[in-house]
C-alpha cells in the first residue's frame, strides 16, 4: 500500500500511516489529506506543524488531550478546544492529524 506523490510512491500501513517517517513532505501531506477528505487550511497546517515539532522534540506523537492542551496554550482557546479540533479533523485530531503529519499513530490510540 502506498501514496502516489507526483509519481513517487510512499509506503503506508493498512491504516494509512506512512512506514518511513523520513519520507514525509508537504506534498505528501496534501496527498494524505485528500485521501482523508480534509481541505487543509491554515489552522490544519498549524496543528500538523505543531505535531511534527512535538515529535521532533519528544519522539512521541502526543495523546489527543495533550495536543489540545498545548494548542490551547500556543494558539488560544478558540482553536485549542475539543469541538473545534474535531471540526478540523473529524476522525480525531490526534489520529488524523498525525497521519497527515507523517507520524506514527499516537501512543495509546487503538
Amino acid at each position: 500500500m502506498a501514496y502516489d506523490v507526483n509519481g513517487t510512491t510512499v509506503e503506508h500501513d493498512e491504516e494509512g500511516y506512512i512506514t518511513n517517517l523520513s519520507e514525509w513532505t508537504k506534498e505528501l501531506a496534501d496527498v494524505i489529506s485528500k485521501a482523508e477528505d480534509i481541505d487543509m487550511g491554515e489552522e490544519h497546517w498549524a496543528v500538523v506543524n505543531f505535531l511534527r515539532d512535538y515529535y521532533e522534540e519528544y519522539q512521541i506523537a502526543p495523546a489527543v488531550r495533550v495536543l489540545i492542551k498545548s494548542i490551547k496554550k500556543s494558539m488560544g482557546p478558540e482553536v485549542g478546544n475539543n469541538k473545534y479540533m474535531y471540526e478540523l479533523f473529524p476522525y480525531g485530531p490526534a489520529k488524523q492529524a498525525c497521519k497527515i503529519a507523517g507520524l506514527p499513530k499516537p501512543t495509546g490510540c487503538v
Binding site: 522534540e57 519522539q59 512521541i60 502526543p62 495533550v66
Partner: peptide, 14 residues
C-alpha cells in the same frame, strides 16, 4: 535503535 530518552521530558504534559 530508537532514542526514547527525550520522551521523559514530555511526561509533564501528561
Amino acid at each position: 535503535l530508537k532514542n526514547f530518552s527525550p520522551t521523559f521530558r514530555a511526561l509533564g504534559d501528561y
